[in-house]
């Protein structure tokens, strides 16, 4: 009969699995300090802070970071608007084609990124749209809608309709209800969804390679370094910084939606 204490074998298997998930990322932190700059030698022959200064002085890294942040900010804004509208409609009523709408929102991340990427690229080609900042945003916003949508739809479901009716009965019009009842209710879900959308866009590389042309976002910069390593130590430092930067929105989103039935981020 199963006891309340886990069998040792289960503990070991679960623990080993978690280690497998985390050790590689921790390794990045050590490599950021290595003195070795020609190979991936382990153990590091020595430790140094030099590469942080070198990375700090690199204009190409800064330019890529700036582009990534701009793209992520605007894509998140677009995704917030579209995702919330969609969630509001879907949770409000049963209407014809409701399932289709959910499917349409999920499709951009359900299909492999390479499909989304090449699809967008052929569309740009046919419509003769040159690559620009906005072609990147177009792609990112499309697959960011789903994370906002998922968070918002879960919250709308918990916000009871009687609350809205009560507001109306007390004399508020639709806009006042939206401003004073609905928005405060869904605010944290939107914030969480927005953070996740930001993290998703900041990190995206597969679709971006098809929609960026010659522009370099930070992930594209890293990809070039991975394919043709030139500055291994700088890549190590950038990798470490990226881990830290993406960690913050994830933790933030987790704390914002903790204790609700649907915790943010479950469907990346």
């Amino acid at each position: 009969m199963p006891s309340e204490r886990a069998p040792v074998s289960l503990k070991i298997a679960a623990g080993a699995g978690l280690l497998f998930l985390h050790l590689p990322i921790l390794l990045i932190f050590i490599y950021a300090f290595t003195t070795e700059d020609k190979s991936y030698q382990w153990p590091p022959p020595g430790l140094t802070l030099k590469w942080f200064a070198v990375t700090w002085g690199r204009p190409d890294v800064w330019a890529a970071l700036r582009l990534s942040l701009q793209v992520a900010a605007i894509s998140t804004a677009v995704a917030l608007v579209l995702g919330t509208l969609c969630a509001a409609a879907v949770s409000r009523a049963h209407f014809f084609g409701r399932e289709t709408v959910s499917l349409l929102v999920i499709l951009p991340i359900a299909l492999p990124g390479v499909v989304t990427g090449i699809a967008l690229r052929s569309a740009f080609h046919i419509a003769e749209i040159p690559f620009s900042f906005w072609t990147i945003v177009l792609g990112h916003a499309t697959f960011c809608v789903v994370v906002v949508y998922n968070n918002a739809v879960a919250r709308f479901r918990r916000t009871s309709g009687s609350l809205i009716e009560a507001s109306m009965d007390l004399g508020a019009d639709s806009f006042q209800t939206l401003r004073h009842v609905i928005l405060p209710n869904i605010a944290t879900a939107l914030l969480a969804g927005g953070m996740l959308a930001f993290a998703l866009s900041f990190d995206e590389v597969i679709v971006t390679t098809f929609t960026a042309g010659q522009q370099q976002t930070l992930p594209i910069w890293m990809l070039e370094e991975l394919v043709r390593p030139r500055q291994r130590p700088v890549t190590n430092v950038v990798a470490m910084v990226v881990v830290l930067v993406t960690l913050l929105p994830i933790l933030g989103a987790y704390y914002l939606t903790r204790g609700t039935d649907a915790v943010a981020g479950q469907g990346k």
């Binding site: 998930l21 985390h22 590689p24 990322i25 390794l27 990045i28 490599y31 991936y40 382990w42 996740l196 993290a199 990190d203 590389v205 992930p219 890293m222 990809l223 991975l226 890549t235 990798a239 990226v242 881990v243 993406t246 960690l247 994830i250 981020g265 990346k268």
Partner: peptide, 15 residues
Amino acid sequence: PLWSSYLVKVYSWKL
């Protein structure tokens, strides 16, 4: 790990 940067994860395995 799910939300950590995809490229960083791949990179760590290259190391």
